[in-house]
Simulated assay, not measured.
Amino acid sequence: MIESRIQQLIEALNVSVLEFARQLGEHRGEKVYHILHGRMKPRYDTLEKILVAYPQVNGDWLMRGEGLMFKVLDSPSAAITVEERLRNMEFLLFQLNQRMALLQETNDLLRTDIEQMRQERNHRS
């Protein structure tokens, strides 16, 4: 969910919610707090402000959860820090672990289904 990605971004940037909100042009953090707690969905202009305030953030990741949290750019002036690269790696590992857990759960369910089908077939024979 986009709320959790914004929370992850705030944590990865190592800023407070209030500082994050101020970078978006908000005087108080209420709007961001409402988004983080699911009371409000972020509007397009809010997402655009995040990407303008933090140009190192990958828009595909922010909006759809695809790819890395931070852009990996080739130009030296736009290079991300080692810390941001590490956060990218940590996030990728987190995503991989989640996918592995889901695949394991699916695999276990399929094994159970196959075993039940075998038992039903054996009872009919």
Rank of each mutant, 00 (worst) to 15 (best):
L93Q: 14
L102W: 04
R64H: 11
N122G: 03
E11D: 14
L93S: 12
K41Y: 08
V52W: 06
L73C: 08
N14M: 01
R87L: 09
Q116E: 07
A79P: 03
R121Q: 10
L36C: 08
D108E: 15
V72M: 12
A12G: 07
V17L: 04
R124N: 04
E19W: 00
Q8N: 11
R39V: 04
R64Y: 12
I114F: 08
L9Y: 04
A79R: 15
E90I: 07
T81C: 03
R43C: 02
D113T: 12
P55A: 15
L62V: 07
Y44L: 14
R87V: 14
Q56S: 15
F20Q: 05
L18F: 04
E30W: 05
L51H: 05
M40D: 03
R43F: 04
R99M: 12
E66T: 14
V52P: 03
F20Y: 06
R5I: 10
D108G: 06
I35V: 04
E105H: 12
N107L: 12
I10W: 01
L47E: 04
I6C: 00
T81V: 07
I35A: 00
V32F: 00
F94I: 01
T112W: 05
L68F: 00
L9W: 02
R111V: 07
R85I: 07
S4M: 10
I50L: 04
S75N: 04
R85W: 07
A78S: 09
E105L: 13
T46H: 01
Y54K: 09
I2C: 05
H123F: 08
E83F: 06
F94N: 01
R124F: 09
E3G: 10
H123I: 07
P76R: 11
D45L: 13
R121K: 13
L96Q: 15
G29Y: 00
R85M: 14
G67P: 02
E11C: 09
L92F: 06
R124A: 12
F94D: 01
N14F: 00
I114R: 12
L102M: 10
L96F: 08
L18M: 11
M40T: 09
P55M: 13
Y54V: 10
Q7W: 04
P55C: 14
N88W: 00
R85Q: 13
L103Q: 15
Q104L: 12
L24C: 09
L13K: 11
L73T: 14
N122I: 08
A53G: 09
E11H: 09
L103E: 12
P76V: 14
G65Q: 06
